[in-house]
Nucleic acid binder design. Sequence first.
DNA 1: TGATTGTTGGA
DNA 2: CCAACAATC
Length: 436
Amino acid sequence: MDKNTPVTIFWFRRDLRITDNAGLYHALKSGNPVLPLFIFDKEILGELEDEDDARVTFIYNKIEDLKSALNTHHSDLEVVYDTPEYAFTKLIKDHKIAAVYTNHDYEPYAAARDGAVKQLLAKHNIEFKTFKDQVIFERAEVVKDDGKPYTVFTPYKNKWHQKLKPFYLKAYPNEQYLKNLYLFKATALPSLTTMGFTKSDAKFPETGYEKFIADYAEKRDFPAIKGTSHIGLHLRFGTVSIRQCATDAHKAHEKTWLNELIWREFYMMVLHHFPKTMDNAFKPDYDNIKWINNEQQFKAWCDGETGYPLVDAGMRELNTTGYMHNRVRMVVACFLSKDLLIDWRWGERYFARKLLDYEMASNVGGWQWAAGSGTDAAPYFRIFNPESQLKKFDPKLEYVKKWVPEYADLSKYPKPIVDHAFARDRCLKAFKTALS
DNA sequence: TGATTGTTGGA
DNA sequence: CCAACAATC
């Protein structure tokens, strides 16, 4: 095809799959051949602190997969390493673009970026069309009858179920329209090194979540058991379809795993309505808390050297694998914000840097839950005891021994950096003062 | 999706 | 002596 053929660009972002991709479906039915695009955004990559950031390797692998999948249909994936502004300016010169299609992306940077792209395209009379793809219900689709957002999970969840109709779970049948791809050869894929990254040797979880659904409620709290699906990473980058996940969860009799998908949408809805809560307490009083913010203790927490084995095991699992079991996430978050009285935002930023499955809405929501300042939060006086959490959830010390091997020889293991009974009392006083 | 402390009532 | 329970943080 020559360069005067009008094309529809489909821009992949957090939806790195062909199957059941909403925006791609609409692009393939737009009437023009579809030119697939991915942008390694210099602005986003420039913010990352670690050159072996495993998330970049993960995306890179998936881009290579997408490219070869498109190649089997005699099409290709154009990959640009630059800003979106540069990428589109260049594409406008090289092609006759009828429209740009993509899927909704909700975080603050993404919303601002898409606004700017839309304006740029409008100057060239190019339509910018976006679609819901990464959630079942977005933004204000599930709100109270008076239009106000829910701030408590259970009523939100009930309304979510009420609104659910088969249509929302239906897969987009993209396979039958792939003949509408633009036939071309893309420019060379930039290397990871070119972009300033090295290949991470992290092990990425498989997409298979189905086998975890049935026993999830029973097994999910025990970090030594393989009881959780690790699907967060794939939901984050769209390497599974949320509609497929929700369909499978719905079919299974067990509701707990589906609830976690609804928590994800609950927190996205909260962040949409209350964008300030990204770095402000949802309950403003909680920003009066006088955090101690001891840098040394923060470092001990980051490094898994607090002297509390469950906390340390969690942090070391995170540092080593980019993942932490959810029960343990709650324990380390509570320990940082309540026992150490370190601002939850410090912990949130650390998780943002380390978690493969990092998602702003869930992460901020989870941290504010632990610190007590969020919507539907744990009351401030609910303070986990790291010792009894260990006894309850890792009684045989299997998880601890895996990540903190020196725990077997207590002479080599650090003493607790703070006494829990003392810290609990101190926390209750600090919170009471701030909230009175 | 807690922990702690104090009380009660049965062994 | 210690479950079981309630009240409190």
